[in-house]
Design a protein around this nucleic acid. Structure first.
Lengths: 200, 200
DNA sequence: CAATTATTGGAGCAAGCACTCCACGAACGC
DNA sequence: GCGTTCGTGGAGTGCTTGCTCCAATAATTG
């Protein structure tokens, strides 16, 4: 009778994260289509039955990874409220991209995702992530403009696009360029962003 | 007896280009794996037999497109020999990226390629293209440094990487960002590159 | 016109894939 | 212990895909 064996949310979350981690690794090194579910399962050390017990679809795994990234972004943004130096905040946000890129899997994952952008679900998730990130940036850019710390000859939205250009390009370079390391170029990234924000 | 029906190189080249053009289109809008050979054939208005008569493999088509791009790069470089204003040349080269991006298929194709970088053959071809492009840029950067037009606080190779960062990021933004058009942002790209080269 | 060969379309095939299904074992309430 | 449900692995399946094969056609020479 009795309702035996209730779900253990912690155990479930842990397994989920384990699969997510494996997915991140394999997506990064093989691309989306190159990452077969079989390989992801092997990387995670599980059977395919388990995989589809946690994710209905391979695409769902990708989406879950993206969602995790978006969460981190919003958390990071929340931790910055109350600051009064918009330029400093913006540069920290830019620098955090370099820090993310220090995990070698991140750049690879980013290009893997870019390669599946034509899938509507992925495009939507990525758009949401992009919008969240842009929202944060724009708010600080506007404050900086009001402040006099940021150039006012360009609208805030356009400045945000250019910050994104810098960080996207940075990730791409780290992925491709042998001599271009996240740690080594971090400082120059910040300096370049500062120069741009001031209106060099 | 008689050797009838000799190959017509022009006809062959034309067909080849027709397929290449279709491939560029479909790769750009569907990604590499999303671009089925069937769809490429439909786009080109040919049967699959014809396709494989011209390209042994789907990957070969991708490689052919890349090779065409490399050729254009080297041709463009050759046309610049003899100039004495390194900074001007560099900015023209950067601007030509923006011009390429005006063809909406180019940014899409670039990310499609990025999504298959884990294939050794593609990685190799892309490395060759990258090396060719870098070689040209580095030569002009070095001349600019000797000239006093380009900053000397960074080694030429590193400056080249950062120029590539700008152009890569530019292509990515054009592909993703609704409000970010190649024509509209071209000028700012050149200005930003100039600022960076001078050492802002 | 005949002979010969490049060129073409499309039917079909083998392989690989995401995903389903099921049976067994473990964990819990009673 | 017993009953019940969750968690798990892996064999199997149906579909898609890159690619092959071949018969028909077009083009060119003599």
């Amino acid at each position: 009778m009795a309702v035996a064996r209730p779900v253990d949310p912690e155990r479930r979350a842990a397994r989920r994260l384990q699969i997510i981690d494996a997915g991140l690794t394999v997506f990064a090194e093989r691309g989306y289509d190159g990452a077969t579910t079989a390989r992801i399962c092997r990387q995670a050390g599980i059977g395919s039955g388990t995989f589809f017990h946690y994710f209905a679809t391979k695409a769902d795994l990708l989406l879950a990874i993206l969602e995790l990234g978006t969460e981190e972004t919003t958390e990071r943004a929340a931790g910055l409220e109350g600051r009064t130096d918009p330029l400093g905040v913006l540069l920290e946000l830019v620098a955090s991209t370099a820090d993310d890129a220090a995990d070698a899997r991140v750049p690879g994952f980013v290009r893997a995702v870019a390669g599946v952008m034509h899938e509507p679900a992925v495009a939507e998730a990525l758009a949401a992530d992009d919008a969240a990130q842009r929202d944060v940036l724009r708010r600080w850019v506007e404050r900086g403009q009001a402040n006099g710390e940021v150039r006012t000859d360009l609208p805030a939205a356009r400045i945000v696009s250019w910050l994104a250009l810098l960080t996207d390009g940075f990730l791409e370079r780290v992925a491709v360029d042998e001599g271009f390391t996240a740690e080594g170029e971090r400082e120059l990234l910040v300096a370049t962003a500062r120069s741009f924000l001031r209106g060099g």
